[in-house]
């Protein structure tokens, strides 16, 4: 159950998408999100869909993973569909069932909306699927470097993120263990009234917090033993270097984004 969470999961590989410099990958992902929001016509949508699919193909991530990462968002999508289907009004209704009127505008809007959400999720999950957490935080740190000028603790933030991401699977495993232990003592975890359910969380959360604090303390000691003292004067084992391949792939992405954006000029917006 808890193991189904795919956020932040990483699938090691050697594809061009995996090898792309983390900094560029982050920038490309951010640009993709922006482009996705600015582009509001069908050809643009289709092109971005093709772009995402091509990236998945290139990275060798099985499309099954896509299904898995979309699954938890299904309720949100269904909710949006229902809400918009009945509340967007146009001129001539497409279907009329008593007081329910569905307009073609609403259907169009929903199609664009859903594909937008799906493309956003798929595009951004590709970043975490193909980038190890270390590379990801290294990239973020490098990109945020300029913020050092205004005394923003960039390195510390990056380190905190690395640690947080690193401990997600550990804590999930720990939660499962504790749940099993309390179930063995007859704890009811998934039935009863709302207040029963809240009460049932205490035997899980208390041990979980205690173990999280214990782990944090151990980790802090271990870091101190290795003379960790923050970012100042710290050198890196993995230097981020931009290769010719990186430049080539980034150029391809940029051109694609430019084409998607330029479609604004030729096609009418849907919403």
């Amino acid at each position: 159950m808890l193991k189904d969470i795919t956020i932040g999961q990483h699938f090691p590989g050697k594809s061009p998408v995996h090898n792309l410099d983390a900094r560029l990958k982050i920038v490309i992902t951010v640009l993709f999100v922006i482009v996705r929001f600015m582009s509001t016509n069908f050809p643009g949508l289709i092109l971005s869909g093709v772009f995402v699919l091509a990236m998945y193909k290139l990275s060798g991530i099985p499309l099954k993973m896509l299904k898995k990462s979309i699954k938890p968002l299904m309720p949100l999508i269904v909710f949006t569909v229902i809400l918009n289907l009945f509340f967007i009004k146009g001129e001539t209704p497409l279907i009329k069932l008593g007081f329910v009127e569905i307009y073609p505008e609403a259907v169009m809007f929903i199609i664009v909306m859903i594909s937008r959400i799906l493309l956003l999720i798929c595009g951004t999950s590709l970043l975490t699927y193909t980038t190890s957490t270390i590379a990801l935080t290294d990239g973020l740190e490098a990109l945020m470097k300029p913020l050092n000028k205004i005394n923003f603790p960039v390195h510390e933030m990056a380190m905190m993120m690395t640690i947080a991401l690193r401990f997600i699977p550990t804590l999930i495993e720990e939660t499962e263990k504790i749940m099993n232990a309390q179930k063995s003592r007859g704890a009811l975890l998934d039935s009863g009234s709302f207040s029963d359910k809240i009460k049932a969380l205490v035997p899980i959360l208390v041990p979980l917090f205690i173990s999280a604090f214990r782990r944090a303390e151990e980790l802090a000691t271990a870091m101190e033993c290795r003379c960790y003292h923050g970012g100042e004067g710290r050198t890196r084992l993995r230097q981020l270097k931009i290769t010719n391949d990186d430049i080539r792939y980034t150029a391809v992405c940029m051109v694609t984004f430019a084409v998607i954006l330029s479609m604004k000029l030729f096609f009418t917006r849907v919403i």
Binding site: E174, K177, A181, Q182, S184, P207, I210
Partner: peptide, 8 residues
């Protein structure tokens, strides 16, 4: 379980 003290 193993390390049952973590369930207290």
């Amino acid at each position: 379980f193993q390390y049952p003290e973590y369930q207290l």
